[in-house]
Protein backbone atom coordinates (compact mmCIF):
# COMPACT_ATOMS: atom_id res chain seq x y z
CA UNK A 1 0.00 0.00 0.00
CA UNK A 2 1.26 3.45 -0.88
CA UNK A 3 0.79 5.79 2.05
CA UNK A 4 0.13 9.49 1.47
CA UNK A 5 -0.50 12.45 3.70
CA UNK A 6 -2.61 15.41 2.59
CA UNK A 7 -0.75 18.69 2.28
CA UNK A 8 -1.77 21.60 4.49
CA UNK A 9 -4.55 23.71 3.02
CA UNK A 10 -2.28 26.80 3.03
CA UNK A 11 0.27 24.93 0.95
CA UNK A 12 -2.43 23.90 -1.52
CA UNK A 13 -3.66 27.49 -1.69
CA UNK A 14 -0.15 28.62 -2.49
CA UNK A 15 0.38 26.04 -5.25
CA UNK A 16 -3.02 26.88 -6.76
CA UNK A 17 -2.53 30.65 -6.59
CA UNK A 18 -4.08 32.35 -9.62
CA UNK A 19 -6.00 29.25 -10.76
CA UNK A 20 -9.73 29.74 -11.26
CA UNK A 21 -10.96 26.33 -12.38
CA UNK A 22 -9.43 23.31 -10.68
CA UNK A 23 -10.11 19.69 -11.49
CA UNK A 24 -9.66 17.59 -8.34
CA UNK A 25 -8.96 13.98 -9.30
CA UNK A 26 -9.17 11.10 -6.84
CA UNK A 27 -7.34 7.87 -7.52
CA UNK A 28 -9.14 4.62 -6.77
CA UNK A 29 -5.89 2.64 -6.90
CA UNK A 30 -3.64 2.21 -3.87
CA UNK A 31 -4.56 5.49 -2.18
CA UNK A 32 -8.26 4.92 -2.83
CA UNK A 33 -8.47 1.48 -1.26
CA UNK A 34 -7.51 2.83 2.14
CA UNK A 35 -9.54 6.01 1.81
CA UNK A 36 -6.58 8.34 1.54
CA UNK A 37 -7.07 9.72 -1.94
CA UNK A 38 -10.17 8.18 -3.50
CA UNK A 39 -13.47 9.67 -4.59
CA UNK A 40 -14.74 10.51 -1.10
CA UNK A 41 -11.49 12.26 -0.14
CA UNK A 42 -11.56 14.24 -3.38
CA UNK A 43 -15.08 15.43 -2.53
CA UNK A 44 -14.08 16.21 1.05
CA UNK A 45 -11.15 18.27 -0.18
CA UNK A 46 -13.48 20.29 -2.45
CA UNK A 47 -15.65 20.93 0.64
CA UNK A 48 -12.58 22.15 2.55
CA UNK A 49 -11.87 24.58 -0.29
CA UNK A 50 -15.23 26.22 0.40
CA UNK A 51 -14.19 26.95 3.98
CA UNK A 52 -10.88 28.53 3.05
CA UNK A 53 -10.76 32.29 2.56
CA UNK A 54 -8.66 32.04 -0.62
CA UNK A 55 -9.69 28.71 -2.07
CA UNK A 56 -13.45 29.38 -1.74
CA UNK A 57 -13.16 31.50 -4.88
CA UNK A 58 -11.86 28.57 -6.88
CA UNK A 59 -14.33 26.77 -9.10
CA UNK A 60 -13.82 23.03 -8.49
CA UNK A 61 -14.87 19.94 -10.42
CA UNK A 62 -14.41 16.60 -8.70
CA UNK A 63 -13.89 13.22 -10.31
CA UNK A 64 -12.11 10.00 -9.55
CA UNK A 65 -10.50 7.42 -11.83
CA UNK A 66 -9.46 3.76 -11.64
CA UNK A 67 -5.76 4.51 -11.27
CA UNK A 68 -3.57 7.45 -12.17
CA UNK A 69 -0.35 5.49 -12.78
CA UNK A 70 -1.74 4.23 -16.11
CA UNK A 71 -1.49 6.80 -18.90
CA UNK A 72 -4.24 5.35 -21.12
CA UNK A 73 -6.72 5.34 -18.24
CA UNK A 74 -5.75 8.91 -17.38
CA UNK A 75 -6.15 10.13 -20.95
CA UNK A 76 -9.46 8.35 -21.57
CA UNK A 77 -11.01 9.49 -18.32
CA UNK A 78 -9.71 13.03 -18.02
CA UNK A 79 -9.17 14.56 -21.46
CA UNK A 80 -12.60 16.25 -21.68
CA UNK A 81 -12.58 17.48 -18.08
CA UNK A 82 -9.01 18.74 -18.32
CA UNK A 83 -9.94 20.88 -21.31
CA UNK A 84 -12.26 22.87 -19.02
CA UNK A 85 -9.73 23.43 -16.20
CA UNK A 86 -6.66 25.65 -15.48
CA UNK A 87 -5.05 23.06 -13.23
CA UNK A 88 -5.46 19.51 -11.98
CA UNK A 89 -5.08 18.69 -8.31
CA UNK A 90 -4.17 15.03 -8.15
CA UNK A 91 -5.01 12.95 -5.09
CA UNK A 92 -2.71 10.12 -6.25
CA UNK A 93 0.81 9.21 -5.12
CA UNK A 94 3.79 11.01 -6.65
CA UNK A 95 3.87 8.56 -9.55
CA UNK A 96 0.21 9.21 -10.42
CA UNK A 97 0.69 12.98 -10.27
CA UNK A 98 3.52 12.69 -12.78
CA UNK A 99 1.49 10.60 -15.22
CA UNK A 100 -1.29 13.20 -15.09
CA UNK A 101 1.28 15.99 -15.50
CA UNK A 102 2.75 14.49 -18.65
CA UNK A 103 -0.70 13.78 -20.11
CA UNK A 104 -2.00 17.35 -20.32
CA UNK A 105 -0.73 20.85 -21.01
CA UNK A 106 -2.13 22.38 -17.84
CA UNK A 107 -0.28 22.00 -14.52
CA UNK A 108 -0.94 18.88 -12.43
CA UNK A 109 -0.27 19.49 -8.74
CA UNK A 110 0.03 17.07 -5.85
CA UNK A 111 -2.60 17.17 -3.11
CA UNK A 112 -0.48 14.84 -1.01
CA UNK A 113 2.98 14.17 0.22
CA UNK A 114 3.77 10.58 -0.75
CA UNK A 115 5.21 9.02 2.36
CA UNK A 116 6.06 5.34 1.98
CA UNK A 117 5.02 1.81 1.06
CA UNK A 118 3.28 0.55 4.14
CA UNK A 119 0.84 -1.77 5.79
CA UNK A 120 -2.08 -1.22 8.09
CA UNK A 121 -2.54 -3.40 11.12
CA UNK A 122 -6.12 -4.35 11.77
CA UNK A 123 -6.34 -3.20 15.34
CA UNK A 124 -4.94 0.25 14.66
CA UNK A 125 -5.48 3.19 12.39
CA UNK A 126 -1.76 3.64 11.86
CA UNK A 127 0.07 2.81 8.66
CA UNK A 128 3.56 1.39 9.02
CA UNK A 129 6.37 1.56 6.47
CA UNK A 130 7.47 -1.94 5.59
CA UNK A 131 9.28 -1.82 2.23
CA UNK A 132 11.61 0.70 0.63
CA UNK A 133 11.64 -1.15 -2.70
CA UNK A 134 15.40 -1.68 -2.46
CA UNK A 135 15.44 -4.00 -5.44
CA UNK A 136 17.21 -6.81 -3.61
CA UNK A 137 14.88 -8.61 -1.19
CA UNK A 138 16.44 -10.46 1.75
CA UNK A 139 13.28 -11.29 3.71
CA UNK A 140 14.01 -15.02 3.40
CA UNK A 141 17.15 -14.47 5.48
CA UNK A 142 15.70 -12.23 8.17
CA UNK A 143 12.59 -14.02 9.36
CA UNK A 144 10.32 -12.01 7.07
CA UNK A 145 11.23 -8.71 8.75
CA UNK A 146 13.01 -6.14 6.60
CA UNK A 147 16.03 -4.50 8.28
CA UNK A 148 16.61 -2.24 5.29
CA UNK A 149 13.25 -0.58 5.96
CA UNK A 150 12.64 -1.14 9.64
CA UNK A 151 16.12 -0.32 10.96
CA UNK A 152 16.63 3.45 10.43
CA UNK A 153 20.30 2.69 9.73
CA UNK A 154 19.45 -0.21 7.41
CA UNK A 155 21.93 -2.33 9.30
CA UNK A 156 22.45 -5.79 7.84
CA UNK A 157 24.29 -7.66 10.57
CA UNK A 158 22.52 -7.14 13.87
CA UNK A 159 21.55 -4.40 16.32
CA UNK A 160 23.59 -1.27 16.90
CA UNK A 161 24.67 -0.06 20.33
CA UNK A 162 21.75 2.35 20.46
CA UNK A 163 19.27 -0.42 21.14
CA UNK A 164 17.50 0.23 24.45
CA UNK A 165 15.00 -2.09 26.12
CA UNK A 166 14.26 -3.63 22.75
CA UNK A 167 13.49 -0.21 21.27
CA UNK A 168 15.31 1.81 18.63
CA UNK A 169 17.71 4.64 19.47
CA UNK A 170 15.79 6.96 17.17
CA UNK A 171 12.37 6.41 18.79
CA UNK A 172 11.55 4.92 22.19
CA UNK A 173 8.21 3.69 20.85
CA UNK A 174 9.60 1.80 17.89
CA UNK A 175 10.81 -1.78 18.17
CA UNK A 176 14.42 -2.37 17.17
CA UNK A 177 14.18 -4.25 13.88
CA UNK A 178 17.08 -6.47 14.84
CA UNK A 179 15.47 -7.58 18.07
CA UNK A 180 12.32 -8.44 16.11
CA UNK A 181 14.46 -10.41 13.67
CA UNK A 182 16.39 -12.10 16.46
CA UNK A 183 13.20 -13.15 18.25
CA UNK A 184 11.59 -14.37 15.06
CA UNK A 185 14.59 -16.37 13.89
CA UNK A 186 14.91 -17.86 17.36
CA UNK A 187 11.25 -18.92 17.30
CA UNK A 188 11.75 -20.42 13.85
CA UNK A 189 14.86 -22.30 14.99
CA UNK A 190 16.88 -20.38 12.41
CA UNK A 191 19.15 -18.32 14.64
CA UNK A 192 22.15 -19.59 12.70
CA UNK A 193 21.17 -17.24 9.90
CA UNK A 194 22.26 -14.33 12.10
CA UNK A 195 25.77 -15.76 12.26
CA UNK A 196 26.51 -15.35 8.58
CA UNK A 197 27.99 -11.99 7.62
CA UNK A 198 25.64 -10.23 5.23
CA UNK A 199 27.48 -8.47 2.43
CA UNK A 200 26.98 -4.75 1.77
CA UNK A 201 23.86 -4.03 -0.26
CA UNK A 202 24.07 -3.37 -3.96
CA UNK A 203 22.68 0.13 -4.24
CA UNK A 204 23.20 0.19 -7.99
CA UNK A 205 19.92 -1.76 -8.07
CA UNK A 206 18.23 1.27 -6.56
CA UNK A 207 19.58 3.90 -8.93
CA UNK A 208 16.59 6.02 -9.85
CA UNK A 209 14.68 6.27 -12.00
CA UNK A 210 14.17 2.54 -12.47
CA UNK A 211 12.15 0.78 -15.15
CA UNK A 212 10.89 -2.71 -15.82
CA UNK A 213 9.23 -4.42 -18.80
CA UNK A 214 5.48 -4.71 -18.22
Amino acid sequence: MIIVETKKIEELAESLAGKKKVLIVGCNGCVGIHQQGGERQAEELAELFKLDKVLKNVDTTVTSILRQCDKSIVKDALTDLAAEADAILSMACGAGVQVVAESFDIPALPAHNTSFIGVQERESETFYERCVACGNCILHLTGGICPVTRCPKSHMNGPCGGLYNGKCETDKNRDCAWILIYNRLKALGELDRLKTIMEPKDFSKKTHPRSQEA
Partner: peptide
Protein backbone atom coordinates in the same frame (compact mmCIF):
# COMPACT_ATOMS: atom_id res chain seq x y z
CA UNK B 1 31.64 2.02 14.33
CA UNK B 2 28.12 2.31 12.95
CA UNK B 3 27.60 5.77 14.43
CA UNK B 4 24.58 7.40 16.03
CA UNK B 5 21.66 8.22 13.77
CA UNK B 6 21.48 11.73 12.31
CA UNK B 7 18.16 12.45 14.03
CA UNK B 8 19.93 12.31 17.42
CA UNK B 9 22.15 15.31 16.77
CA UNK B 10 22.11 19.02 16.04
CA UNK B 11 21.53 18.55 12.30
CA UNK B 12 18.55 16.16 12.28
CA UNK B 13 17.66 17.26 8.73
CA UNK B 14 20.88 15.70 7.38
CA UNK B 15 20.75 12.71 5.04
CA UNK B 16 21.89 9.63 6.95
CA UNK B 17 24.23 7.52 4.82
CA UNK B 18 24.66 4.10 6.44
CA UNK B 19 25.86 2.53 3.21
CA UNK B 20 27.74 -0.01 5.37
CA UNK B 21 27.30 -1.27 8.91
CA UNK B 22 30.12 -1.78 11.40
CA UNK B 23 30.66 -5.44 10.43
CA UNK B 24 30.90 -4.54 6.76
CA UNK B 25 33.16 -1.56 7.51
CA UNK B 26 35.46 -3.85 9.49
CA UNK B 27 35.64 -6.23 6.52
CA UNK B 28 36.28 -3.33 4.15
Amino acid sequence: LSGDHTVMGDHPQAKPVFDLDSVQLTAA
